[in-house]
Design a protein around this nucleic acid. Structure first.
Lengths: 237, 237, 237, 237
DNA sequence: TATGAATGAGGGTTCATTCAT
DNA sequence: TATGAATGAACCCTCATTCAT
């Protein structure tokens, strides 16, 4: 689709950096579209404009390439989010809201991230084997998020009985799943999933909804509703 | 162990019904675990206890079998939900809440449904080719849901400016995604994803959270929050 | 070469026995000629007149097929020899001589056995991994041979100080190596390695020589020669 | 560790001689261990510490390299043997015995020679294509050996009816095959093929046996045994 | 209907070899 | 000369599907 694809026949250009990048790009596209099992190394090579054997000069095998793609796609996100959370010290709802928006927008700008995560979730088998390698970064970010929510709870902004882990999960899932299933939603409502601008506009309207519902749902002063049955933050055995 | 007895192995009898059912069951398990591309027809046949060729007496090919599995797994859900929605005429939040719980519990009792939907979402390519066949049932159920929400809005129970489609999507996504990624969540919080009872208990706690957040988020009287920017229920061009 | 090769195009004949046999035959020929690494599964399949994928219906992989060939080629030999040795109770040199001749003739009639053993010897790596599977049969035969030689030594027919293991090794190696390198020998002496009858005649003359040299070398009464330095039959540490 | 010193890694200097030698050494090891087909040029290059492409500056291709290895490994042997045979004019059995020992010891000191010859023998296909290149040297040595044996026969030391070619072959094969299959022999007799000293000691005991058996087998005065059926030294048609 | 052998296209990967740098 | 990226032809093997029995 992109007009500036890899040079079609510049025979024997010697540029490892570019080659590796082209491979990763093509692989990301292929894995995103077809998942690990559905992806074809031959397609990746072709789209990268290199012979298929060259893949194995840069990556041990298909799976290694897959992981490289995953990490390349998810690491930036975690880094950004981590930075944001680290800087934000005022424990009010503003931070939570901007985090949500930022997450949503990241996924909007990096559609592969959501798609790849969807494959990842679906394919439970792979998950056990190697849970994304940046487990540490991922975990750090997550625990930083939990901490911020606890701070907000301590400051009286968020209902104190809510499990911070669940709070995080709710907004993460909502953002992710939107981008995974926009197409379906749009089609179901009679729109054209390929008309990017309107899809994007719809997304912006959706995140506004999510934030309204979610924020007024977690805000401390909002509720006479009976709290959830169990006390919060129990660990599993 | 009598040599001349009928059905010495309780399997060798010609029983098309049983065979077909066994195939579907095995296929569901295989597709759920590995997705369409990762599933092996040979494994399905072996697990069903039939020779591999027999699959093609009952189903045109792998894809047809896949669709049969999808429909068999999703149709019951839609039917149940449809019934529930049809019966429920009182337009208050009670109905919404019980719908959410019912949906969540259905997924808890039928884990394949969530897993299969996850594969379906990930694999956008297939989706275009054949969007679940029961599109009508699915759409009917959905529009019935929308209608009920509009009724609740008309009755002043739900914030009137919320897009009913979004309201539905939010709770559907939350329920689905929980079952798709429990394992990850549990593992991330130091639990054992294989210990079913505690996972189940965690799910119950989660759905309570979701309902509290979500219900107080959509309830009409809850909010001084500024409404979302755009007016609701715009169609895409 | 053989006029009665596998039926060229009897489409879809359903005969597992024949197919398996054809595969083994073709494989034996290919492995014999090119060794494990040089052999091509595609060639084997083609020569057997079956699609290449069918190999994996009968054998797990190339290596399994290789082992099946080895066992199929060597087991008969060991069995024959074992029988012969078992029956022969008179502990004189006649038995030893007839064993040698029998071994030599077996190799003459089953040229693949010698060739395959040559590959086996050359490829030390494979040897460690799986030393022919019939290790027991092989070892039994060997120890039976040793025993017979000890009997002959006890009876005063064979020089008592000779290590029976070495005696066996000498004649085994001579017989085997002849068949492995006839071609080279013939070519070196100006003959035509492809003219079977004269090669065979040469072999018969050779085995006569071997037997004369070898028998008068081991016969008990033959020697004023000083015995080998070490005492016989020491084990390695 | 001086940054500007020459050859900071004792390898980076341009030294064609050294490079070529390193390649040959690495190649010998690789071919010896895996044969022609099993050998990997990449492994050879890596083991020689040079980039893989450099092989093709020194050798036309893999096969040429293989031949260079063969010649480099076998020529010294032939040269040594040739010298020995040339110098030895006294036509008695002493010369024969010392030749055998020398041959055996050469193989003991140069294990690759035996292993490479084993591959060579196994791979009949290659043999036809290029039979060692030093055919002349090889042939000369062989005919010199034959001549010496004939002299010994003329002098009454060796049974006159024995075919000199066979006599040579017998001892050559025994020596070679020992080194090719020591490992197997040792393992079969419960020893440790990796314990070099005991393997070496065993070899020495073996060659003593071979010499005793062989020498008393060919010695002129040893035998009332009936001579081999055919008259000696017939040529093949 | 049931069985499993047969089919053949194509998948991931290897590897000798070439060539720009 | 040296380097290692690039090339592409196979290679082994998988697997959905067909078909004789």
């Amino acid at each position: 689709m992109s007009a500036t694809g890899p040079s079609p026949k510049t025979k024997r250009t010697r540029d490892p950096e570019r080659t590796r990048a082209a491979l990763l790009l093509a692989a990301r596209s292929e894995f995103m579209e077809h998942g690990f099992n559905g992806a074809r190394t031959s397609t990746i090579a072709k789209q990268a404009g290199v012979p298929s054997g060259l893949i194995y000069h840069y990556f041990e095998n298909k799976q290694t390439l897959y992981q490289a793609v995953m990490e390349g796609s998810l690491a930036p996100y975690f880094e950004n989010l981590h930075e944001l959370l680290e800087g934000a010290t005022s424990p009010d709802l503003q931070l939570l809201e901007s985090s949500i928006r930022m997450y949503f927008e990241f996924l909007q700008d990096n559609p592969h991230a959501a798609r790849l995560m969807a494959w990842w979730h679906a394919d439970e088998g792979w998950r056990r084997g190697a849970p994304i390698k940046e487990a540490e970064l991922c975990a750090d970010t997550q625990s930083l998020g939990l901490q911020r929510i606890r701070e907000a709870q301590a400051a009286g902004c968020i209902k104190p009985h809510l499990d911070p882990g669940f709070v995080v999960k709710v907004f993460v899932d909502l953002c992710m799943q939107w981008h995974v299933s926009v197409g379906e939603h749009v089609a179901a409502h009679g729109g054209d999933p390929d008309h990017a601008p309107s899809v994007r506009a719809l997304g912006e309207r959706y995140i506004d909804h999510v934030i309204e519902i979610f924020m007024s749902g977690v805000r401390a002063d909002s509720a006479p509703t009976p709290p959830p049955s169990n006390s919060s933050e129990e660990k599993l055995s």
